[in-house]
C-alpha cells in the first residue's frame, strides 16, 4: 500500500508539514454537520430493510466489557453470547468481535477458539493513554501475543490538543508496527477533542499513520459516539480512500444502545461513505447493551409482537 499512500507521504515529514496539512483540510461547520446527521436520522427503515439492517448490525457488534470488575467468568459468558446471541434462534448471526482488556485476552482467546469471532483488546494504557510509549508498546505486544487480532489503541489527546501532531503520528506508527498482523483501531476519544475540526484532523492523522480503523471513543468519556462525529469520520474515510486508495474502517463506540440508534448509523454509513462500508470488515459498533435490543427488535419483526428483556440472556 505504500505506493498508493505516496501522494501524502510528504505531509508527515515534519511537525510543520503535518500541521499545514491537517489545518488545510476543509473546515467543518458544526451546525451544518449536526443538521445533516439529524436529517439522516429521520430515515424510516421498515420491514425487509429493517430485518436486513438488524442482522447486519448484530454482525458488526464488537461486544465489549471494559470494567475493573471484569473476571474470566464474565468474559467467558460474554464470549458465549458472542457466539450465539439468541439461543432460541440458530439463524441469528454471531457478533464481529469481543472487546476486552489485555488481561482478559487469554480467557477470551480460549473461549472464542474456532468461532471466527475476532478478538479485540484495548491497549496503550487505555483509556487515558497517559503512560510512556514503552509501556504502551509492551501493552500492545502482550495483547497480540496472547491472541488478540485487533488492537484498540487510544491516541495521546494531550499531545494532539497541544498541537504535537507528529508525536501522535509517530506513536500510532510505532503501535501499528507492534501490532504485527493484528488490525489497529485508533481511538480518537472525540469527546475530549471537542470540535469537529479536531475530529476531522485526528481522523486524517490516524489514517496517515496507518490505522486500519478509526474509532470514536473509549466509552469512558462523555459524550462518546454521536451521529455527527461519526458523520465526520465517515467523510474522512471516504475522502481518504479517494485520495490515497486505502480504505479505513470506522467504529463508533459508547452510547449506542438501541436498534433505532444502530439503524441511524447504518443509514449514515450507506449515504455518507457508501455501501462499501456496510460490512463488519469496515464498520463496527462498540457496544454491550445494544445487542439485546437488536435481538428484541429482531424477534419483534419475526413474530409480529413485542418481546421483553426476560427473553434474552443477560451477560
Amino acid at each position: 500500500m505504500t505506493a498508493t499512500i505516496s501522494p501524502l507521504s510528504e505531509v508527515t515529514r515534519s511537525d510543520a508539514a503535518l500541521r499545514t496539512f491537517l489545518h488545510g483540510l476543509p473546515g467543518v461547520d458544526r451546525v451544518g454537520a449536526d443538521a445533516r446527521a439529524a436529517g439522516l436520522g429521520t430515515r424510516s427503515i421498515k420491514t425487509t430493510a429493517k430485518a436486513w439492517a438488524i442482522d447486519l448490525a448484530i454482525r458488526m457488534v464488537d461486544l465489549t466489557t471494559l470494567e475493573g470488575s471484569d473476571t474470566p467468568g464474565k468474559v467467558r459468558a460474554l464470549c458465549a453470547k458472542a457466539r450465539q446471541p439468541d439461543p432460541g434462534d440458530p439463524a441469528c448471526p454471531s457478533v464481529a468481535a469481543i472487546c476486552v482488556y489485555p488481561s482478559m485476552v487469554p480467557t477470551a482467546a480460549e473461549a472464542l477458539r474456532g468461532s471466527g469471532i475476532h478478538l479485540a483488546s484495548v491497549a496503550t494504557a487505555f483509556p487515558s493513554g497517559q503512560a510512556p510509549l514503552k509501556v504502551k508498546l509492551d501493552d500492545t505486544r502482550a495483547a497480540v501475543a496472547a491472541g488478540a487480532d485487533e488492537i484498540d489503541m487510544v491516541i495521546s489527546r494531550g499531545a494532539f490538543l497541544s498541537g504535537r501532531y507528529l508525536e501522535v503520528f509517530e506513536e500510532i506508527t510505532a503501535i501499528k508496527e507492534a501490532c504485527g498482523k493484528a488490525h489497529l483501531k485508533v481511538i480518537l476519544e472525540t469527546g475530549e477533542l471537542v470540535t469537529y475540526d479536531n475530529v476531522r484532523r485526528a481522523s486524517w492523522l490516524a489514517m496517515l499513520a496507518g490505522g486500519d480503523f478509526i474509532k470514536t471513543s473509549t466509552g469512558k468519556v462523555a459524550p462518546a459516539a454521536t451521529l455527527p462525529v461519526t458523520l465526520i469520520m465517515l467523510e474522512a474515510v471516504r475522502d481518504f480512500l479517494d485520495t490515497t486508495g486505502r480504505k479505513v474502517g470506522v467504529k463508533p463506540a459508547g452510547g449506542i444502545r438501541t436498534t433505532k440508534d444502530a439503524i441511524k448509523y447504518l443509514v449514515m454509513v450507506n449515504e455518507i461513505a457508501g455501501d462499501g462500508w456496510l460490512d463488519p470488515d469496515w464498520f463496527r459498533f462498540g457496544a454491550s447493551t445494544l445487542l439485546n435490543d437488536l435481538l428484541m427488535q429482531r424477534t419483534k419483526l419475526a413474530t409480529g409482537h413485542y418481546s421483553g428483556p426476560d427473553y434474552f440472556t443477560l451477560d
Partner: peptide, 9 residues
Amino acid sequence: MSAFEYAPA
C-alpha cells in the same frame, strides 16, 4: 444498487 435498499415507508 445499494446493498441497503430502504423498503417503502
